[in-house]
């Protein structure tokens, strides 16, 4: 098992290397003069040269590459052009809200989507199923920020049940923390939920037609046990896969959700960096987000082995 995990871990290295090379070459081979663009519209030649020197773009390409690679291997993501603070520090300062938002969304989405997917499969072609499928189609079309404003309008402005925006760190108390995450999680989770619910339904339908479900029914087991143990455990692999795929959706959505709800996390940091054209920060964030995604996929890969005894390492 450990050997398997280590092997999978090594398999992620090429992917991360490609990501790293991409951000490196993007800056070096961008059309136009990135230093001029980063420095801004009315920058003087000196200012542009200063940016160029700061980014190390004035040195030979090979040298740039080696400097950059050694930095990266040491875990050094460079320095922000504007605040001069190390990118790693900027990122770690903003990590908590984003992790909290992502995990709570993941939790809300999975906790809601799997039961409704199972329900839809159980009541297939009945009205419950049609409602669920209709919701899924809508969920795929609903932009995160539009839903976010609809939720804010009703729950925060009209009914004043929840805060309009902002984030309360967990050390400020559990309820304010949870309260500040409810609407963002719902807005961010809707498409994800639709994706998981639809996959759960499809996978369950496939499983429910299998012989072993007939066996389980012939044993007079409770419906709950047949659906949630006998069927769902067999249906789990595609569901887990799509939960992993959806993490990408979630990460893209985080950037927008944090902007709408004014949550000071990595998404907000990204937007600020883009608006100020702070490329080192953007580059660091890409590496972190891509790393998170690769890591999630790794966890998913490993979880297959626990769910299905037929899978061998």
């Amino acid at each position: 098992m450990t050997a398997y995990i280590v092997r999978r871990l090594f398999a992620t290295l090429p992917v991360m290397a490609v990501v790293a090379l991409f951000v490196f070459f993007l800056l070096r081979f961008a059309p136009g003069d990135p230093a001029a663009i980063i420095a801004g519209e009315d920058a003087t030649t000196e200012a542009i040269e200063a940016v160029r020197a700061k980014l190390g773009l004035d040195r030979p390409m090979v040298e740039q590459f080696f400097v950059w690679v050694t930095q990266l291997l040491r875990g050094d993501l460079g320095v922000s052009i504007f605040s001069n603070l190390p990118v790693t520090r900027l990122i770690s300062q903003r990590l908590e809200p984003t992790v909290a938002l992502t995990l709570s969304t993941l939790f809300v989405a999975v906790a809601m989507a799997i039961p409704i997917g199972v329900l839809a499969a159980w009541k297939v072609r009945k009205w419950v199923d049609r409602v669920v499928m209709g919701f899924a189609v809508l969920g795929f079309a609903m932009p995160v920020f539009v839903l976010a404003y609809i939720l804010i309008y009703f729950f925060a402005v009209q009914w004043q049940m929840l805060p309009v925006q902002g984030y309360q760190p967990i050390k400020e108390g559990l309820w304010p923390f949870v309260e500040s995450l409810i609407l963002p999680s719902l807005a961010l989770g809707i498409t994800y939920m639709a994706l998981i619910a639809r996959t759960t339904r499809a996978s369950m339908l496939e499983v429910l037609s299998q012989d072993y479900i007939r066996t389980a029914n012939s044993k007079g087991l409770a419906t709950g046990r047949v659906l949630l143990l006998h069927a769902l455990k067999n249906a789990a692999v595609p569901i887990i896969t799509v939960i992993g795929i959806g993490i990408a959706l979630l990460i893209s959505g985080v950037v927008i959700t944090e902007t709408v709800f004014n949550i000071p996390g990595l998404g907000r940091l990204t937007v600020d960096a883009v608006l100020k054209r702070d490329y080192p920060v953007v580059q660091g964030l890409i590496l972190v987000f891509a790393g998170a995604k690769v890591l999630v996929n790794l966890v998913i890969d490993i979880s297959y082995a626990f769910l299905d005894p037929r899978i061998r390492y």
Partner: peptide
């Protein structure tokens, strides 16, 4: 595979930062 590891909005943002 590498490109797919980068969330699409971030990838777009990175390009736009430089243009």
């Amino acid at each position: 595979d590498g490109l797919m590891a980068i969330p699409s909005i971030l990838l777009a943002i990175a390009l736009i930062t430089l243009s």
